[in-house]
Design a protein around this nucleic acid. Structure first.
Length: 598
DNA sequence: GTAGGGTTAG
């Protein structure tokens, strides 16, 4: 066991420099002076590079006598700040493996690393270790665990832990509140975060603890609301913030401009942008990126390009986001050659391409049917040592299936796993959808079974896709079997699932079954939408059951479901049936939307 | 020495 030492590093440095330690030092001779400089300057300011970190760690680990645990904590904390949590964890275990001493802080850093990697279970295991070693968890420990629960979307457990900590007499730190609010916002619970925030700003003491909202808490909520598409609410919160004399900065404006332009409220977005400039807040590279992205999504690629020129003129250096966004903008317009040109010029302008640049361009090629060009880019990225991501593979798989190249897709899926890239739920959706659309239903069923066996969480969307494939492949019985197996699996059919099944029954002439399902879904609390209505009405229409269609149209009107183009063409068809135009015309209801009624 | 904020891709 390496003895724990309280001797400060400076004395090591002094001893080393005076040469007194030279006889016991192992080669290569450690440089305590430079270690201390490294810890104090680079680690504290967070300016370390992961590539150097591993080397420093090796040096530290083999110094004789060993640096104190606090130096390792400083170092591990700095590595954690670079978000290389896997490295933190492996370094911790290397310390443990040689019996190096660790302390409470080391364990807190370890918990935070596990929690940030969505491994809250391991986080709690480390908590067990903390207690076993006789330490007491502190606010930092619990804050990390709350974050861990939140990133795994265990919202109620996180709130419960928060309440528990207050009950136990811990005073949440401002960062604890921040973690809770941020976690809620990032998991699509911004409104819940907002309620919490409002309670706090009223000066109400929540869970016995006062808290004053600040720029950061407002910023997280405004951004969260924007991301959930609740932009009007976000604007209200923004105004409320200003009323409280908390002054928005470039970040808050950026969130708002982004949210509003994503919601298509381009004029409002522009107004906030102008307000920001009027306030003397300088747009930064991120602001420009958001604007460029908005223009690209609007199809205004020329304007977006001009904005790039403008930002360069203003001395704001475009980054990889800027180029990637513009590249994607070109691809969206089908101008993949322009995107390629940008891709080439990026390197010339000294901007490093990244995996995302490749993904965007590969996607651009695949979308316009130039799958071979996409493929050779994939080969190029491998050759240049860029590690393809799950998105790279998903993009190529989608394209291969669309071209009907099932064998190539299967081969690529194998390659993906050999590369160590873990498929995600989109990958499985693509595979299942691809199998179904290419009439490989046996493969689809086999994959479903494999996924279930390996404990993959299968979503209702995946089943929708397979059930649809089975229906369209004429295997209605298998589809029905799969449909009824959903409930025991704990999956709730959605309006899409019902619509697929209803479509299947209708196509098979089993209108009674279709209608029963249609009636049943509502009883189960799943309400038909315009697609469901169109589907079943189409069934009755094709079966020359006009009264049923009329009946359903009336139901649809009662439910204030707006007809779409399919509905209209159905009605036209109905009116031309049996020469009973006028008879049916009188029965067609008037549709109104809820907003009409107000 | 450890815990909280904004932009891009399938």
């Amino acid at each position: 066991m390496v003895p724990r030492t309280s001797v400060h590093l400076a004395s090591y440095a002094a001893a080393a420099e005076s040469g007194k330690l030279s006889s016991i030092l192992v080669a290569p001779r450690p440089n305590y002076g430079s270690l201390e400089k490294f810890l104090k300057n680079d680690c504290k300011s967070g300016k370390i590079h992961i590539k150097d970190a591993v080397g420093h760690f090796d040096n530290m680990l083999h110094m004789q006598p060993p640096p104190p645990t606090s130096s390792f904590n400083l170092f591990l904390g700095a590595v954690a700040k670079t978000k290389h949590y896997e490295d933190v964890i492996s370094m911790y275990y290397r310390m443990v493996a040689i019996n190096y001493s660790t302390d409470f802080i080391t364990l807190n850093i370890l918990i935070n690393s596990f929690c940030s990697l969505k491994q809250v279970g391991f986080g709690f295991a480390v908590l067990g270790g903390i207690l076993k070693r006789g330490y007491s968890p502190n606010v930092v420990t619990i804050t990390s665990l709350i974050k861990g629960l939140l990133v795994e979307k265990k919202i109620n457990e996180a709130v419960r832990l928060f309440k528990k900590m207050v009950e136990l007499g811990y005073r949440p730190h401002i960062k604890t509140w921040g973690t809770l609010i941020n976690g809620l916002c990032r998991t699509g619970n911004s409104e819940r975060a907002l309620l919490l925030h409002q309670e706090m700003s009223k000066g109400n003491v929540l869970f016995g603890v006062p808290f004053r909202p600040n720029l950061i808490s407002y910023s997280m909520i405004i951004d969260g609301l924007c991301k959930e598409g609740l932009v009007d609410k976000a604007v209200k919160v923004f105004l409320d913030m200003k009323e409280k004399r908390i002054y928005p900065d470039v970040v808050v404006y950026c969130s708002l401009v982004h949210g509003l332009s994503d919601a298509g409220k381009w004029e409002e977005a522009k107004a906030f942008f102008n307000e920001m400039v009027d306030q003397g807040i300088r747009p930064n590279v991120v602001t420009f990126n958001v604007l460029i992205n908005a223009l690209c999504k609007e199809g205004k690629i020329e304007e977006a390009s001009r904005l790039l020129d403008l930002m360069v003129q203003r001395g704001e250096k475009p980054d990889s986001f800027t180029y990637n966004t513009l590249m994607d903008g070109f691809c969206l317009e089908g101008k993949v050659d322009n995107a390629r040109h940008l891709f080439v010029s990026m390197a010339a302008k000294g901007e490093e391409r990244d995996v995302i640049s490749y993904n965007i361009l590969i996607n651009g090629y695949c979308k316009c049917g130039r799958i071979d060009d996409g493929w050779s880019l994939y080969k190029e990225m491998l050759q240049k040592d860029y590690k393809p991501t799950v998105i790279t593979f998903n993009t190529l798989l989608t394209a291969l299936f669309r071209e009907g190249k099932v064998g190539d897709a299967q081969e690529l899926f194998g390659e993906m796993q050999r590369c160590g890239v873990t498929p995600n739920s989109s990958t499985f959706n693509i595979l299942l959808d691809g199998f179904c659309k290419n009439n490989c239903l046996a493969e689809a069923m086999e994959l479903i079974q494999l996924l279930e066996k390996t404990g993959h969480e299968l979503t209702i969307e995946i089943f929708n896709c397979v059930i649809d494939g089975l229906c369209k492949g004429g295997k209605l019985e298998d589809a029905t079997k799969l449909f009824v197996s959903l409930y025991p699996k704990g999956l709730v059919p959605t309006v899409v699932t019902y619509s697929i099944m209803i479509h299947g029954f209708c196509k098979n002439g089993q209108l009674e079954k279709a209608n029963n399902l249609f009636l049943e879904m509502e009883k189960k609390g799943c309400f038909p939408n315009v697609v469901t209505f169109n589907t079943i009405m189409r069934g009755f229409c094709d079966n020359n059951d006009a009264p049923q269609v009329v009946d359903l149209l009336q139901k649809m009107a009662e439910k204030h479901i707006s007809p779409d183009l399919s509905t209209i063409s159905l009605v036209v068809e109905l009116l031309s049936k049996d020469g009973k135009f006028y008879e049916y015309l009188n029965l067609i209801p008037t549709f109104s939307t809820r907003s009409d009624e107000k």
